[in-house]
Computed example of a mutant assay.
Amino acid sequence: MTEHFHKPTNFPSGMFEAFMGGEDPAQISRVAHETAHALLSRVREDPDSDVVDKLVSFTDTHGIDAIAELWSRSNAKSLPGALWRIYLLRLLIRQDAEGTSYLFQRGTEVVSTIDPVVAGASAPTGPAEITELADRILRGLFEGDFAVALDRAAAFCRVTAAGCASVADDQDTTQPERASELTTRALRFSRTAEELTSCARLWRHESLD
């Protein structure tokens, strides 16, 4: 991917050694932050559409492991933590576009906030629309307003959480295990929404490290 940049992106020499056994959490954290800042600043400086396309679809070709190794252990309210969560959301959507779109659509029917509008999915929201939304949010990190992209992702999470909770209520009597699973998922989406909203706020104050 680096051949598409005008200049090579310089990462620390100990980038990969830091992950050999995970013996130095401080070094792992440093590498996570440095790679996230290097990648984001370089692409946003010159958002070539081909490069952005490759970054959006990176996990489709290479899987999530490489990104997870770099960023998954980062603090939720940090730049690498935010990038990890957006990539993970996109992966979850693409793995089950039909199920996710159903939960999101249900959420739009029960929430009384502007979150469906902020998220920006086409209505009604089916598998194709929810997949497109995931791609547009991720692209927004690299070529749009970074904080807005985070806010859209947070809104998506809140709407989907509401959908999970609503479907869980429907199934509480007939399928209690499924209802419990959906309730847990709703809590996870809600927590992720809070984390992304905090990241957006920090970015606007130039404090997202």
Results as ranks from 00 to 15, higher is better:
residue 146 F to K: 10
residue 105 Q to V: 00
residue 37 H to L: 14
residue 162 A to H: 02
residue 86 I to E: 03
residue 194 E to I: 11
residue 152 R to T: 04
residue 28 I to A: 10
residue 122 S to K: 14
residue 89 L to V: 05
residue 177 E to R: 11
residue 34 E to A: 06
residue 150 L to V: 04
residue 97 A to D: 09
residue 52 V to G: 04
residue 85 R to E: 14
residue 74 S to W: 01
residue 149 A to Q: 06
residue 133 L to R: 04
residue 106 R to L: 02
residue 197 T to I: 06
residue 147 A to C: 11
residue 132 E to N: 15
residue 114 I to C: 06
residue 107 G to Y: 06
residue 180 S to I: 06
residue 38 A to F: 02
residue 101 S to T: 03
residue 63 G to P: 05
residue 87 Y to Q: 02
residue 139 R to K: 12
residue 35 T to N: 10
residue 199 C to K: 10
residue 29 S to R: 14
residue 168 A to L: 03
residue 64 I to T: 14
residue 98 E to V: 12
residue 184 T to Q: 12
residue 16 F to V: 13
residue 147 A to E: 06
residue 6 H to M: 01
residue 182 L to V: 08
residue 42 R to T: 15
residue 70 L to K: 06
residue 154 A to V: 05
residue 209 D to E: 15
residue 64 I to F: 13
residue 161 A to N: 03
residue 160 T to S: 09
residue 153 A to G: 13
residue 96 D to P: 08
residue 52 V to R: 04
residue 184 T to H: 12
residue 184 T to V: 09
residue 110 V to F: 01
residue 203 W to D: 03
residue 52 V to E: 01
residue 154 A to R: 06
residue 106 R to A: 05
residue 100 T to I: 11
residue 165 A to H: 13
residue 52 V to K: 01
residue 158 R to W: 02
residue 22 G to S: 05
residue 82 A to L: 03
residue 120 G to F: 13
residue 38 A to D: 10
residue 57 S to D: 15
residue 36 A to K: 02
residue 5 F to W: 08
residue 141 L to C: 14
residue 172 D to K: 14
residue 21 G to R: 07
residue 135 D to G: 08
residue 74 S to V: 02
residue 108 T to R: 05
residue 41 S to R: 04
residue 9 T to P: 04
residue 35 T to I: 15
residue 94 R to F: 02
residue 94 R to M: 05
residue 196 L to S: 12
residue 139 R to W: 10
residue 112 S to A: 05
residue 141 L to V: 11
residue 185 R to L: 13
residue 40 L to N: 07
residue 130 I to Y: 02
residue 121 A to F: 05
residue 128 A to G: 11
residue 174 T to H: 04
residue 54 K to L: 10
residue 24 D to P: 02
residue 120 G to M: 03
residue 158 R to Q: 05
residue 39 L to C: 09
residue 179 A to Y: 10
residue 184 T to A: 15
residue 26 A to D: 14
residue 176 P to V: 05
residue 136 R to Y: 09
residue 177 E to C: 05
residue 147 A to V: 07
residue 1 M to P: 07
residue 203 W to F: 15
residue 36 A to M: 04
residue 136 R to W: 07
residue 96 D to Q: 09
residue 77 K to F: 01
residue 40 L to H: 08
residue 129 E to V: 11
residue 124 P to L: 08
residue 3 E to V: 11
residue 40 L to R: 10
residue 185 R to I: 08
residue 166 S to A: 15
residue 102 Y to V: 00
residue 119 A to M: 09
residue 3 E to R: 07
residue 183 T to H: 11
residue 173 T to Q: 14
residue 14 G to V: 02
residue 79 L to V: 10
residue 54 K to N: 09
residue 115 D to S: 04
residue 17 E to H: 02
residue 174 T to C: 07
residue 122 S to N: 13
residue 189 F to H: 14
residue 23 E to F: 13
residue 163 G to H: 05
residue 158 R to T: 02
residue 90 R to C: 00
residue 163 G to C: 08
residue 82 A to T: 00
residue 168 A to M: 06
residue 199 C to V: 07
residue 193 A to T: 12
residue 72 S to K: 09
residue 57 S to H: 15
residue 137 I to F: 10
residue 208 L to M: 11
residue 103 L to I: 03
residue 179 A to V: 09
residue 5 F to K: 01
residue 135 D to L: 06
residue 173 T to D: 14
residue 186 A to N: 12
residue 147 A to R: 05
residue 19 F to Y: 13
residue 110 V to M: 03
